[in-house]
Simulated scan of single mutants.
Amino acid sequence: MSTNTRLIETTPERVWDVLADGWLYPLWVVGASRMRDVDATWPEVGARLHHSVGVWPALIDDDTSVLEVEPGRLLKLHARAWPAGAAEVTLTLSPQGAGTNVTIEEEPVSGPAVLMPGPLREPSLHWRNTETLRRLAFIAERREAPTP
């Protein structure tokens, strides 16, 4: 399992707002290229994001579904990216002063990555999730607060 943590300089509510907007998924998830659809119930358990991975014209349509959710605190996903396989990805938010510690844990559950020994796959997962958290921070820290 790969684990990364980053302090994002905004509230857990602002970070959650980004996670809860499925249309923003390809902006912060490394590898996701575009959104095709977002289930109306996102991010409830069972809801799916319909996205594509890759680079045009070699895009592959796939989806990511919610396995567990605690609004404002936890989002556990089953992320598919054929032909690479699938992974369980857990994002945990915890307040840290005026900011939010966000931890992302990723465990491959199918595909070629499952066959690789942990020490070989960890560096690429760690790099990818470092960039994923960096992108999430850029969006959450700069996004305007909702108008009351």
Rank of each mutant, 00 (worst) to 15 (best):
E144Q: 14
I8W: 03
I8P: 06
T11N: 03
A145N: 04
L67K: 00
A137I: 10
A84Y: 10
G72Y: 02
A20K: 13
R80S: 08
W127I: 15
A86M: 07
R34Q: 14
A113Y: 10
D37Y: 12
R135K: 14
L115H: 11
A81C: 09
W127Y: 12
R34P: 07
T103M: 09
P43K: 00
G118I: 15
A86T: 06
M116Y: 08
T103I: 04
H78P: 02
G85I: 04
V18P: 05
S65V: 02
P123Y: 02
S110L: 14
G54N: 06
P95K: 05
V30D: 05
I139L: 11
R142P: 02
P112T: 12
R34C: 09
P123C: 06
H51M: 07
P71S: 06
L27W: 12
P95F: 01
T5E: 06
G72V: 03
G46Q: 09
R134W: 13
F138T: 14
G54E: 06
P26A: 09
D39V: 06
L93P: 01
S2Y: 03
D61F: 04
T3R: 15
V66Q: 01
L93C: 05
A145I: 09
W127R: 15
V114F: 02
H126C: 10
W16L: 05
P71L: 06
L91H: 05
E105I: 14
D17M: 11
R34K: 15
G22K: 00
E107N: 15
E105M: 12
A84R: 07
L74F: 05
T10E: 04
I8G: 05
A140F: 03
S124G: 07
P148D: 12
V18G: 03
A140L: 08
V53Q: 06
A86E: 11
E9Q: 13
T103R: 09
W127T: 15
R121G: 07
E68Y: 04
L133C: 05
A84I: 12
L93G: 00
P43M: 00
D61M: 04
T130K: 15
G111W: 00
H50F: 13
G22A: 01
T41Q: 03
E13P: 08
V15L: 08
W82E: 12
T130W: 11
T130C: 09
E13M: 14
T147Q: 14
Y25E: 05
I8R: 02
R142C: 11
P146C: 01
L77G: 10
V53A: 09
A98C: 13
D21Y: 01
L27T: 10
A98N: 14
A137Q: 07
V30Y: 01
N4Y: 02
E68H: 10
A87E: 01
D37H: 15
L49I: 15
D39P: 02
